[in-house]
Design a protein around this nucleic acid. Structure first.
Lengths: 363, 363
DNA sequence: ATGAAAGCGCTAACAG
DNA sequence: CTGTTAGCGCTTTCAT
């Protein structure tokens, strides 16, 4: 019909000139209509829209990007994990990006892969994104500097201090420390003498934040700081930690850096013959969907993923669209401690240490 | 320097002509080098690469897409949920897309939103993707037909029968039924007279598949089919179902359509004074990271997300790059039943019904 | 093995 | 309010 499947393009998709011809206007007017530009009479607009509908016209994004120098897309760098935290954040980001009228490109970094964040950012830059979101990065040690020079778009770093310096870096959601502090204080308020911490993997800024918050809470009350137990976010690591902790009669309260580890921890404690929360209290972090339904229902901290993503993206888009203006200020999200049945006052002091050295599986 | 920050474009990014000039070759040769085209002498290639490196040259994707008619990007439509299944699948898709040399664009559909899949596909088409992946769609009833006409790129539908008809539709991973069947048969092999099913929300094809598999297993052994209990994937719904099921002494085995529901179910059963697996066996689906660490460790089915994504994407890309060729055939993934401690033979028949009507909370 | 010329389909100035 | 004229930076086609 119109055109015999032009060069590279797949089929002969209608172009704006085709619409213009059919509507009896100039090509530029079609462009005006589709960009909601002013100065188009209602009548002409109607005719254009009708013609476009008839032809099944849809703007060519590549041409738009080439001509305007903007792609209206935002890239996000995520860890390639289905962990509840990162996954929830990604969903929040997608929604926020869409709400702001942008499209989303996604690149995962694979833990332990050489390229890391630098490579992912580079790939996004190749794709021509207008802005970049780095979600829950981890500190891989030093390859971040390499990117910095080339990054000429605004960058938003979520749930962490900036992992690298680029001309225009924003941050959002670095509030895990205050949430962790609240969790720890909840345990202290219950009269526990101290609180142990089952930490996440330290390359993760999110894990460090929680560790810091726990430290701050303990320091704030002048409590001794027991040695940190290291986990890797998995329930398996929580279980391993639990076996260790179960044999120490001084352990009456544990703050785990995420719910999965808390669940593994509880399992190990239970198998060792300890009761949660009567013998040991446990607090998790995330409020995963199952947290309320494990045994016992888990006291945990709910993270405001959507709010963080929304606030961050609003500021990122502002930075994109107003390169010269001062960045908007971050609004701080609310801390949300969800108290369930896994926390209680410590056992009476006289009975502490009671049969705590033998592991008698119960299941 | 080169050029004072041309019209729309942000800064004066170097173009291929700049590289060509510096390397003392034609622009076309630069293009050849970057596209790994043949007929470029090693010496020239080296000079071009060096010049490009010096200038910090990076190809402009919009121009490439405009000139070639291909964007080298694949769009994925996902539900906006952090549920383990969909999130895992998304990670697998990202990886597979990247491995195939494409980039990924993501659009979520929000359950209950009017636009639904049709809107998401449309948005992806606007963005000019070369292919589309629809991940774990749900049947929203009828708005799919609207898209079909306009979809001129290959579409891969994961974990479901095609939700709409488009010229070139592929499917992958619709194997939940055989996995569900295996799960049910495991319970039957343990001598349970029948198996109850805690189903997922029926708009989800994934939920329907599991229901079908359960039915097939029961039918295959000539067992009675008890009424289906409806859930919504959440642990909360599993808990609600558990309260119901706990009062029925005929319930000795339950196959839950996902792990979260299984966990909620177990909690309700436990609170009702029933033991798992001594009184009631439970099988989940997904093998979430916590499945092995809840009490009791959950027998469940592990889904081969990565394999499904990889196989599907290989075929999608084949369809993109060989429009005329016959589609590749799907390779079927392996079923992986993980037997843990939540399943056992039913209680002795003489004692069945024992104290099953009163709910005496424990834990 | 390399180069020249001609667009891809749009947006951005500038005229009317 | 509307139209004209130039490119955006590549890939493609065809010459050498």
């Amino acid at each position: 019909m119109t055109r015999p499947a032009g060069r590279g393009g797949r089929s002969a998709a209608p172009r704006s000139v085709d619409v213009a011809r059919l509507a009896g206007v100039s090509q530029k007017t079609v462009s005006r209509v589709f960009n909601d530009e002013p100065y188009v009479s209602a009548e002409v607009r109607r005719r254009v829209l009708e013609a476009a509908g008839e032809l099944g016209y849809r703007r060519n994004n590549a041409a738009r990007a080439l001509a305007s120098g903007r792609t209206r897309s935002i890239g996000v760098v995520t860890l390639g994990t289905a962990l509840y935290g990162p996954a929830s954040l990604l969903m929040g980001i997608e929604r926020a990006v869409r709400d702001m009228g942008y499209t989303l490109r996604v690149v995962n970094t694979v833990e332990g892969e050489p390229a890391g964040i630098a490579g992912a950012v580079d790939s996004l830059l190749d794709q021509g994104v207008d802005g970049i979101v780095i979600s829950e990065p981890i500190d891989e040690g030093g390859d971040e500097g390499e990117v910095s020079a080339r990054v000429d778009v605004p960058v938003l770093v979520l749930s962490a201090p900036p992992p690298f310096t680029a001309p225009r870096v924003l941050t959002a959601g670095g509030c895990a420390d205050v949430m962790a502090r609240a969790a720890t204080e909840h345990l202290l308020d219950l009269e526990h003498l101290t609180v142990h911490h089952l930490a996440g993997p330290q390359p993760w800024y999110a894990a460090r934040d929680r560790l810091d918050g726990w430290r701050a809470a303990l320091a704030g009350r002048g409590r001794p700081e027991p040695p940190v137990v290291a986990g890797d976010w998995s329930a398996a690591s929580g279980y391993a930690a639990g076996r260790e902790l179960a044999s120490d009669p001084d352990v009456t309260a544990v703050f785990a850096a995420n719910d999965d580890m808390a669940i593994g921890l509880i399992r190990a404690l239970t198998e060792a013959g300890l009761r949660v929360p009567e013998d040991v209290s446990v607090v998790g972090f995330d409020d995963t969907p199952v947290a309320a339904y494990v045994t016992p229902p888990l006291t945990t901290v709910r993270q405001p993923f959507d709010a963080v993503a929304q606030d961050g993206l609003k500021r990122l888009v502002h930075a994109i669209e107003n390169p010269q203006a001062d960045p908007l200020v971050a609004s701080d999200p609310s801390v949300d401690l969800v108290v369930r049945a896994s926390t209680a006052p410590p056992p009476p002091r006289t009975t502490r240490g009671h049969g705590r050295r033998t592991a008698s599986p119960s299941a």
